[in-house]
Design a protein around this nucleic acid. Structure first.
Lengths: 219, 219, 219, 219
DNA sequence: TATGAATGAGCATTCATTCAT
DNA sequence: CATGAATGAATGCTCATTCAT
């Protein structure tokens, strides 16, 4: 077998694995951990249930992989937003815009997190998620804090604002997954919680851009 | 058996039933439908698992009863708020305040709804909930509409505002049940989505009141 | 429920548990650990497979319980033989006689040990057995040593004699379980490995006795 | 492809097959039929599990082949011993010596037989073995009978003696495979069951010989 | 009523076997 | 030939539900 074939095979395997992961995310998001059956995931991925265990040791590991993927996507997104030019408020808008798009394109990404917080999920997974919690919350809190210093965000404990905002996003994710036909609120509405009542900057350019798709922009 | 005893017995039965219902709500909220085990609920209610089936035909019916109870509490709450004196904005604030208190005291009430929307729950239950959907959303939408006419609520499609606001409340319910130690955001913050940027009325009296506890005020 | 009933219930439960244990021993002995199916055991005990898990946490625990029972029976037997009157040789004959009867009545008891030594069995069980090994071998070795000092047993390392003798007994257990119709060799034959060629004592009274049945004499 | 290459290939194939067979014997002996996994055998043979099915139609056939090989080795051994010069007792000693060496070098050969007797193995295999049973036992019985006529072996039903002796050998095989560090008892000890108490011949020359290795002398 | 023993459908997981590459 | 991806039957285990006591 020549190296080219071997590489192709490897790639094919990776693709298959990713397909299983995507199917799993969908099913886990829609049904929750306990109600999601391995056969459902296999069917959604177009393979037999036995093959799922070829790529993942078991249901729990599969769920953990789904969560990990989401956490990584979040981290990538935050890192990108961090080095965005402009005012803190513009970066916040950017982040928010990206999340709304993620909510539109792949709401499962977020909903799966909701399920992970539930006791529905295996304890091991929840523990793992708790360890990430800091990494997930802190960047958002930092961003809000900066924007507050600029007077662009309403005063008050930034953790509180972050929590309320994330709560809304999670709630929207639920609605989005369960009823894909339902529209999402416009960005301005979602930003109302944060925006200072008498905003110093009138511009909310709303991020018209671009191509950001795939793994990175999926959140 | 004399009538008095019969009545006592009947009452005891009702109490027991309610205890099971409460236990079920808690467990369903924490674990979701599929992961919630009848034995868990029985243990939480302090009875044997066999006895649960004396009060409810089965797991699905039990979950349906939990949902129904929540829907009824919501309806009662809305009806009460409707006939509250004051401006539409004041009634909205009252509703919001009551919900926040419900979120504080019995977040399960709301979280259970989240699970019900999930495909985790039996199809029959979800269908039932969908039928109620109108009754749940409409009063809130109406209230928002009225307040918009007064200029107290920001303009825009009232359904959109209602949905975003409910999304946040659901998200907060998740956080509350999973981590009871976490604080809830203040009422003002939660109202920021709705409140007009240049509010015509500066007063948000915040409803200091009263005794409303128990089944009705629990939402 | 009166105490009498409770006690009866408790006893009934114990009986059922023992029935499952007996069935398990039989099936494990005949098939080995891996090939023994829980349904087989359940069927042999006359119950459903689900009920097996009411009495034992799982297959491995069930097997461990079977082994433990056998080890305990062996310990009881050895303790009894120890305080038997007569010469060491007579005690050895007594032990041997009892084992032959056990081989006749309940060969599963011994065969199950054979399977436990195999890698067929779960590692945990084998480790557990290895810890008992000393307790199992030592008393026999001691008995042989004593009898050697009397000149009743042929000279040589007593461990070697014990091992050879135990090997034969295990081999006979295999034959006995797999073909219950096959006769066992007489006691004299089984003792030939041990007996001194020119026995100092012509008497081998061969233990005509008695009632020893049940758990104790079962080995 | 030239004939030479074809022959080499054929030979290679035969070697490979034999390697698989050897690996299978080892794994089957250690784990039993049911617990032995094809992948284990493949790994032990240094090939992929898929390739095992190029050489053997399936697991059962593989086990059957292992058993057959053992039976054939036994038959060869007996045939060789038959035409050995000397007294019947000397031939018996020779047989015994060869078996002890087999026990030392390849105890799997014998242990596999133990597993085959167990219901662990597929029924077909066990039936096959039962058909061989006569061929296995009879020569040993005949040999014992001859030696009894000479007075070299203790009197009694020769089948009984044969069975007891085989039982011990099987038991020793178990110990040997499971704990390769354990020593085997000396030939004299193993022969004590058979040897007449007042042996007419003092000589037990113990067969110092030779090269007999490989398939034939392995039992 | 109240209990928990008993049942069996449903699910995760394993593994022999097949087959495309 | 050789590999390992793919399949699905088989199996241990869970848990909702029933029912004898």
């Amino acid at each position: 077998m020549c190296p080219r074939q071997a590489a192709q095979l490897e790639q094919l395997k990776g693709e298959r694995r990713r397909a299983v992961l995507r199917a799993a995310r969908e099913v886990f998001a829609r049904k929750g951990y306990a109600a999601a059956k391995i056969v459902d995931i296999a069917a959604a991925a177009g393979i037999s249930h036995g093959l799922v265990h070829h790529y993942f040791p078991g249901k729990e590991a599969l769920f953990a992989a789904v969560i990990q993927e989401t956490v990584e996507a979040w981290e990538t997104l935050v890192a990108e937003v961090r080095q965005q030019p402009g005012t803190p408020w513009e970066r916040l808008v950017h982040l928010c815009s990206r999340m709304m798009r993620g909510l539109y394109d792949e709401p499962e990404h977020l909903l799966v997190i909701v399920h992970a917080y539930t006791e529905d999920a295996a304890l091991a997974v929840r523990d793992g998620l708790n360890r990430y919690q800091r990494q997930i919350d802190e960047p958002l809190v930092a961003l809000i804090e900066e924007a507050q210093r600029d007077g662009a965000v309403t005063p008050g404990p930034p953790e509180e604002l972050a929590r309320a905002w994330m709560a809304m996003v999670k709630g929207l994710a639920i609605g989005r997954v369960m009823n894909p036909a339902s529209a999402l609120p416009p960005l301005e509405l979602v930003l109302r919680i944060l925006k200072a009542s008498y905003p110093h900057s009138e511009t909310t350019p709303l991020e018209p851009s671009n191509e950001d798709r795939g793994r990175l922009g999926s959140l």
